[in-house]
Each structure stands twice: as C-alpha cells, then as structure tokens.
C-alpha cells in the first residue's frame, strides 16, 4: 500500500496521480488529443494523420466498418504502437506515458472477454486487484460494481453461464471496478435486446452525470451516441471526416426549417435566398432552409402567399446525428 490514487471528479484541485504526486487541475486540458497519429499494420495504413483535440466529458466515436475506430481505441489503450505522430490522454503521451495512462483507464472490449470458469464476483475482484486495489477493497467494490450494473443477484454464478446481455454488464463491471477516470466502451450495446440496451444507456448516462469519469464510446448505433455523448468524432477510411460538439450544435439555434410546399414553386427558393436564407431543395416540393438572424417566419408565409404557393408544412428542426454522419460519409 505505498501509493495513493485519487480518481475524483475531473477538475478537482486535490487530485493525485498514482504515486501521490499532486497535479494541476485538468478541467481546461483536453481529455484526448491526437497529434498526427498514424497507425500501420504491415503495408496497410489504418489510421492516417489524425489531428483533433477533444475535451467533452463523453465522446462518441463513429464510423463505418473498417474506419479504424477499434484501432484508435487499441492505440489509446496501448495495445498498438503508432507508426507516426502521437496521442495524449489527459496530457499523458501514449508513447512515453503509457504507465501513467493505464491506471486511469477502464476498457470494455467489443468481443466477449471473461474467464468462463470464474464467478462474476471473483472475476471482477481479480480485475480490481490487478488494477492495484487491495484485496478487501477489490472484493467490496466488485460487489458494488456488480450490483450497480444490475448483476447483484447473479454475482456468484459462473461467467460461462451468463447470457450475452449479462456478459456485457459483467464487462462493464470489470471496467469500472477500479474507478477509472476514462471509461472506454467499445460497442457497449452490441447484441443487447431493447430493454437491455435501454438499461445500458441509462447506466452510461448515470455515470456521465455523476461527473466522476469521462467516457469514450465507440458504437455503430447513432442513437446510442446521440443519447449519451457531448462530442462526436467520425472516422472514415482511417481519417477524421467530422468532429463536433453535439451540445454546442444543439445549443446553437441555426433556425433550420423544413418546408413542404404545393403549387408552382418556380423561383421560390431563389426568393427565399433573397431574404437571406440558405436553401436546399429536397425534392417533391420540400425545401430545407436556414433562416438568418432577424427574419421572422411570417415573411416566408407572405412570400409564399405572394406567389400563390401553399405551405402545407413548416417544421423547425436541427441536424440529427444521422444527418451529420451521412454528410460526413458523403464527404
């Protein structure tokens, strides 16, 4: 019991590192920085010169199959060495500071990962001890973690007898037992039925809202990311094609409206542009427009009336994550 580790909420002034060293508050520091990060497997370049700085509490990692999401996670965890560039997790360089990063991490892999002939509580306790928790504390937190994820009643069962959803929860329990500062979840809702998925999302949201840890969530399911993440990073063929703060985008009222018209609409889009709107025709009489500051919606009604054009629907809406994703994929 030589070293102290406090994994208190991000930005706490009295946070200490693994060996009791006092560190500066890191609230303003980015959680994750990629600095020209490239990863190559043989001749194949998987990640290509990634540059980004992310400081959100929950970051969603999106991309189609083969985009390099899992490779990025494995690089951050330290399983894969970058071929060029580097990345920093809480300011620690992954090339030189791997020893400092690992105690801060919790990782839930995508695939089944467990020891089949162990009970859940023995397994989670062992994982806690390997992270440095003393035996008694590890046992106590193993029980707590299993209760927290909803496996309290099944904690003395062998992991090999668990269903897919229970295995996912057991993986989550081992990832949080040691109280990490960054929890990396690779496809956390993979293979879960709707109630189990809902439960997993609720757990992620609870952990996010507890303010005790940061999350990096890799998922194919845009809805999962949309429900849980503040920032999103979209990869395509090993490159970053989009990075944005969803909270900021949600907060920013771009006055995006969708119109559905009926009647002669020749020149209507141009007339809207004359009012300062950015327009895009979606076909079949539908128009997407971003209204400029100061423009009232009644001006659009007037314009349509003057052209004898029926406005059958007018919706205010923002870009959904799906649209952001699809745009990024098109680009």
């Amino acid at each position: 019991m030589v070293d102290q580790c406090s994994l208190e909420p991000f930005g706490n002034l009295k946070r200490t590192k693994g060996l009791g060293e006092l560190v500066e508050p890191q609230a303003k520091k980015p959680m994750l920085e990629l600095d020209g990060l490239s990863v190559r497997f043989g001749q194949r370049e998987i990640l290509k010169d990634l540059h980004v700085s992310l400081s959100g509490r929950t970051i969603g990692l999106l991309g189609p199959n083969g985009a390099g999401k899992s490779t990025l996670i494995q690089t951050l965890v330290g399983f894969v060495r970058p071929s060029a560039g580097t990345a920093r997790v809480f300011g620690h360089d992954i090339r030189r500071g791997r020893g400092a990063i690992r105690p801060l991490l919790g990782y839930m892999p995508e695939n089944d990962s467990f020891v089949a002939n162990m009970t859940a509580v023995a397994f989670v306790r062992m994982m806690g001890e390997l992270s440095g928790l003393p035996h008694d504390a590890a046992l106590e937190r193993a029980h707590e973690a299993l209760f927290y994820v909803g496996l309290g009643e099944a904690r003395y069962r062998l992991l090999g007898t668990y269903s897919l959803g229970m295995k996912q929860l057991a993986k989550l329990a081992q990832a949080i037992v040691h109280g990490p500062r960054l929890l990396i979840l690779d496809e956390p809702t993979n293979g879960l039925d709707p109630p189990a998925r809902k439960r997993m999302i609720r757990l992620i949201q609870e952990m996010r809202d507890s303010g005790e840890l940061n999350l990096l969530i890799c998922s194919h399911l845009l809805r999962d990311v949309e429900e849980t993440c503040e920032e999103v990073l979209i990869l395509k063929q090993g490159r970053i094609v989009h990075s944005s703060n969803l909270e900021a985008e949600r907060a920013a009222n771009k006055r995006f409206v969708e119109l559905e018209t009926f009647g002669p609409q020749d020149g209507f889009a141009e007339a809207l542009a004359g009012l300062g709107c950015e327009c895009e025709s979606a076909g079949l009489g539908r128009i997407k427009a971003t209204l400029p500051e100061g423009l009232e919606v009644r001006e659009i009604y007037r314009l349509a009336a003057s052209r004898d054009l029926q406005l059958r629907r007018l919706n205010y809406r923002r870009d959904t994550l799906e649209e952001i994703f699809l745009k990024a994929m098109e680009g």
């Binding site: 440095g132 928790l133 504390a137 937190r141 500062r181 952990m207 507890s210």
Partner: peptide, 13 residues
C-alpha cells in the same frame, strides 16, 4: 446503486 470513483490506497505494482 450509484457510481463512485475509488480514492483509496493502491498495492505496490
């Protein structure tokens, strides 16, 4: 049933 970080002592590596 709430998440809480660990702030206790660690064993020698």
């Amino acid at each position: 049933r709430t998440y809480k970080a660990y702030d206790g002592a660690l064993t020698p590596a």
